[in-house]
């Protein structure tokens, strides 16, 4: 499976409710590049921009109008550790926990 197939794939909880979409993968540094978890965002272009430009990751802080615009999306971003991923696929990724039990992205790094 390719990373591009996973990005933007819907993420569902055990009750099959969609809790978000895959925005990024976290891996251990080289040489193994083992997946440690998924970054989960919400559908929509603003959320996509928040992740693509690094605001959700906290890597970008300027220009401030973009930071303000993407602030809400960044706050809603969650990290799902690999142990909580029940199944992987381009059609959907199943997380064995509810949205509220996932830790915010800024606390995961």
């Amino acid at each position: 499976m390719r990373i591009s197939e996973l990005l933007d794939a819907p993420v569902v909880d055990p009750a099959e409710r969609q809790i978000g979409v895959v925005r990024d993968l976290r891996v251990t540094p080289r040489p193994r590049f083992q997946v440690t978890g998924l970054t989960i965002g919400q559908p929509g272009w603003l959320d996509r921009a928040a992740h693509a430009w690094g605001f959700a990751e906290g890597r970008a802080a300027a220009p401030w109008p973009l930071r303000k615009l993407t602030q809400r999306a960044a706050r809603r971003a969650r990290f799902a550790p690999v142990a909580l991923i029940g199944s992987w696929g381009p059609e959907r990724v199943v997380v064995t926990a509810g949205f509220t039990s996932l830790q915010p992205l800024d606390e995961s790094s």
Partner: peptide, 30 residues
């Protein structure tokens, strides 16, 4: 310790041992 695939690998410039550019990371296979 973990790094973001989107920020660290995807779309990054690839250079060989002698720093000769050979392309970009356009996708990754799991």
């Amino acid at each position: 310790e973990h790094v973001s695939v989107r920020m660290t690998l995807l779309d990054a410039q690839i250079v060989d041992r002698d720093r000769l550019p050979i392309g970009r990371v356009d996708d990754l296979e799991l």
